[in-house]
Design a protein around this nucleic acid. Structure first.
Lengths: 223, 223
DNA sequence: ACCATCGTGGTACGTTCGTATCACGAAACC
DNA sequence: GGTTTCGTGATACGAACGTACCACGATGGT
């Protein structure tokens, strides 16, 4: 049935297969054949839509970053219409923590790509710079807003604090990922730290950390 | 000349070859043959001293962690006899930042191992838990000391702050590693943050960040 | 109705990898 | 001094990998 096929859609399906199998066995252990099997297509097809493995990996990273952006947006939307700067910042940072399977995979693969990017210049040109810088800008903006509304402790530098928070979130995420720390502990550290950035007694009452009930629609296959 | 050979020494030499070549081309791209060539021995020898690749990698990680510990100790010693808690903490955190080739390699390989450890249980049992926990304990102790000497801002929780600082340092290190941020910027963020943890006007005058002139005795081979 | 093109499968090729096997010289031991 | 063990080299093997090649059915254009 070789009807005319939507290439973009097909590529997305295959990229998602890549993400799934890489999340399950590690990016370094993924071959074209694995991706093909996971996507339920032949090896030839993977070759057809992505001529080379490098291109597949590149597209996989793009796809991953995109999905992650959507996830963060969804988290922010789920935090309510105007939840106050503190809750927004918290939602942003928490979204990056590996709390469920989906975010674990994100963190894991993103780190894998980062490691590869150290020696692969094609990868190094990818969203490792662009994407986190955007996040930093957004967070800086949020903090500046909060500062203008007199919601921050004195002496807080929005830009430096944004960088620090993002780095902290990433570092904590790695700790969670390797099993050194559990997600609750990481969230607690983040929360405590935000308490030292935001003035206490603010409107938002962040008693329990807003980790959503993890309604992830990840395909429940083999693993 | 098959004199009796010190196995431990030989294994160390090979492990260092592994670290060198992995730092140059990435851990995932390293084969036994590369390690053998880098160490200047035959493939058989690598097999002889480490029966399998997995054991070689495991030992490489141990060796890496050990070297890193020595590096940190050296930094601390170089900071002076009793440089005050602030300087000690700063030296500790700065040592983890990828500022020169040696620490870049450390950070890079350590992250590579961490990624592998997600799916390799033999690796997961290795110092990923033990080692950072020790660092966290040490840092917590340092902060508690400083707190007892009334050198910290009020409201600082030593344990939580230690975790946060370490995570931040790790996250910043990754940023530096992938070229998203330069070392000076990372150091500045760390410094600013420490200013919000330690009381200002303390004895130690940390005007310029104490990144040593990087007298690293790394073998200057190919790369 | 023809034909060029698209989507697809099967399979083969060359390389590289980790590991195993065989062989041998030199020392250590009794 | 014989023999057993140790250190070392060369090479072979089977598997897996990424990629290339070949063939063919179906479809869309004209």
């Amino acid at each position: 049935m070789p009807k005319r096929v939507d290439h973009a859609e097909r590529r997305t399906e295959i990229a998602e297969a890549l993400v799934r199998v890489a999340g399950r066995r590690g990016l370094h252990a993924v071959g074209m054949r694995d991706v093909a099997a996971e996507a339920g297509v032949s090896l030839r097809l993977v070759q057809y839509y992505f001529e080379t493995k490098e291109k597949l990996l590149l597209y996989g990273l793009e796809h991953l970053a995109e999905r992650f952006g959507e996830r963060v947006s969804a988290r922010l939307r789920a935090a309510g219409d105007d939840p106050g700067p503190r809750a927004t910042v918290e939602a942003l940072l928490m979204a990056a923590l590996p709390t469920d399977d989906e975010s674990r995979t994100f963190h894991h693969l993103y780190t894998s790509y980062a490691v590869m990017a150290v020696h692969d210049r094609a990868l190094a040109a990818q969203p490792f710079i662009k994407n986190p810088d955007a996040a930093e800008d957004a967070l800086t903006g949020l903090l500046r807003q909060a500062q203008d509304a007199d919601l921050l402790e004195p002496g807080v530098e929005p830009r430096l604090e944004a960088t620090a928070l993002l780095a902290m979130s990433a570092g904590l995420g790695t700790g969670v990922l390797v099993g050194q720390r559990d997600p609750e502990s990481a969230a607690a550290v983040l929360d405590h730290h935000l308490n030292r950035v935001f003035r206490t007694g603010t409107a938002t009452g962040p008693r329990h950390i807003g980790v959503l009930p993890a309604r992830h629609d990840q395909r429940a296959d083999g693993s």
